[in-house]
């Protein structure tokens, strides 16, 4: 029996696959699955990644210094984002960090700032009695607190 057992994560990208399949059939299955997923996921990244890259140019005009390391960290964060929900709006913070903002239909907001040390500072406003903030570190998969924040802001 041939089995392909990928470990699904919530990420937007296709990195971090772990497979126990070793046969040619399993490898072909893996390639097919990646191709299929890529068909659906790439458009999200195609929208988001140029916006991040554009902040380097935009920051010159606005006199906010966004450096290459921050662009790189923000790109890595974009790859780790969940596949569901709206695509965030990106902008440069006054301190040169890159902010990813999700604004829900009723005004709920969730915002994550990425700096060049791969630190993720997040805060959410989901109503008068539902607010969060905290710090996480950039990792291959999106931290759970951030996934929850995006979910709550997208409702």
């Amino acid at each position: 029996m041939t089995q392909y057992c990928p470990t699904f994560d919530t990420s937007l990208g296709l990195r971090g696959w772990a497979s126990s399949g070793v046969s040619e059939v399993a490898r072909q299955g893996k390639l097919s699955l990646e191709k299929w997923l890529g068909h659906y996921l790439e458009p999200r990244l195609e929208l988001l990644l140029p916006e991040i890259e554009n902040l380097r140019v935009a920051s010159d005009a606005s006199q906010i210094g966004v450096d290459s390391d921050t662009i790189s960290a923000a790109t890595q964060f974009a790859y780790s984002l969940p596949r569901f929900g709206p695509i965030p709006e990106v902008s440069a913070d006054p301190d040169g960090e890159i902010s990813f903002d999700w604004i829900g239909p009723s005004g709920q907001m969730f915002s994550v700032s990425v700096n060049k040390q791969n630190r993720l500072a997040y805060a959410g406003w989901f109503g008068e009695k539902s607010r969060i903030y905290g710090i996480e570190q950039l990792a291959e998969s999106c931290p759970q607190q951030i996934v929850h924040g995006i979910e709550k802001a997208s409702r």
Binding site: E97, S111, A121, A123, Y133
Partner: peptide
Amino acid sequence: IGKDEQKAIALLLCA
């Protein structure tokens, strides 16, 4: 000083 706390305040002012 904490960026997460700053963002929480910024979101309050947005709201």
